[in-house]
Computed example of a mutant assay.
Amino acid sequence: MARQFLLKRETLISADIHAAWAFFSNPENLAKLSPEYLHFQIIHCPETKEVYTGMKIEYKVSPLMKIPMKWESLIQDVIPLRQFKDIQTKGPYKVWEHTHLFESTENGVLMKDNILYEMPFGFLGNWANRLFVAKQLNELFDYRTEKIKMLFP
């Protein structure tokens, strides 16, 4: 039986809410937060600098053995300067819902990432998650945290 997993991360960004929102709500900046081994590339994205509810974005990534795969996202629940959610409509996961939350604090912006995901292929997918997927996702978000610290010193 397939299980859903939840990955949660919090990152304090040295910026005000407007600068943080402008950066993270712009799909073009996703590549800046992705390690080179993913070969992240946007295939199609509306010509806008900010996400909106209903926006569709198509990417190409190579998460395993450099094998390219298409990933399509639908943006939902956009509340400017507060949150948005990207939901995978096509890609490697059976379920992928990434909620991005932004909270202004005295020390900058607290960004919270909540990723709900489910692997395909039932128990085989769960086994793959235990073996390497969860580790790879944690490494990806560790990389993002370090890149954010460099981009917002």
Rank of each mutant, 00 (worst) to 15 (best):
I43S: 02
I43L: 15
H44N: 13
H44C: 04
H44M: 02
C45Y: 09
C45N: 13
P46A: 11
T48H: 09
K49W: 05
K49E: 14
V51F: 07
Y52R: 09
Y52Q: 10
T53R: 08
G54D: 15
G54L: 11
I57W: 09
I57K: 06
Y59Q: 05
Y59E: 01
K60A: 02
V61F: 02
P63A: 12
P63V: 10
L64Y: 13
M65C: 07
K66W: 12
K66H: 12
K66S: 14
P68Q: 07
P68T: 05
P68D: 10
K70Y: 05
K70P: 04
K70D: 11
E72D: 01
S73C: 10
I75L: 06
I75W: 02
D77L: 02
V78I: 05
I79S: 13
I79C: 11
L81N: 15
L81F: 15
L81K: 15
R82K: 15
R82N: 13
F84V: 04
K85C: 14
K85T: 12
D86M: 06
D86R: 07
D86G: 03
D86T: 09
D86C: 04
I87A: 06
I87T: 14
I87K: 07
I87D: 06
Q88D: 06
Q88C: 05
K90T: 15
G91K: 00
G91I: 00
P92S: 09
P92V: 09
K94M: 04
K94I: 02
V95Y: 02
V95L: 13
W96Y: 02
E97A: 13
L101T: 12
F102S: 06
E103T: 14
S104E: 13
E106M: 06
E106F: 06
N107P: 01
N107H: 15
V109C: 11
V109H: 12
L110V: 10
M111C: 06
M111Q: 11
M111A: 05
K112Q: 15
D113L: 12
L116E: 11
E118W: 00
M119L: 14
P120W: 03
P120M: 10
P120A: 12
G122S: 13
F123S: 11
F123T: 03
L124C: 05
N126C: 00
N126A: 00
N126K: 00
W127D: 00
W127F: 09
A128N: 00
A128W: 00
R130C: 00
R130N: 04
R130L: 04
R130A: 04
L131Q: 09
L131H: 02
L131R: 05
L131E: 00
F132E: 03
K135N: 12
Q136F: 01
Q136N: 12
L137F: 08
L137V: 04
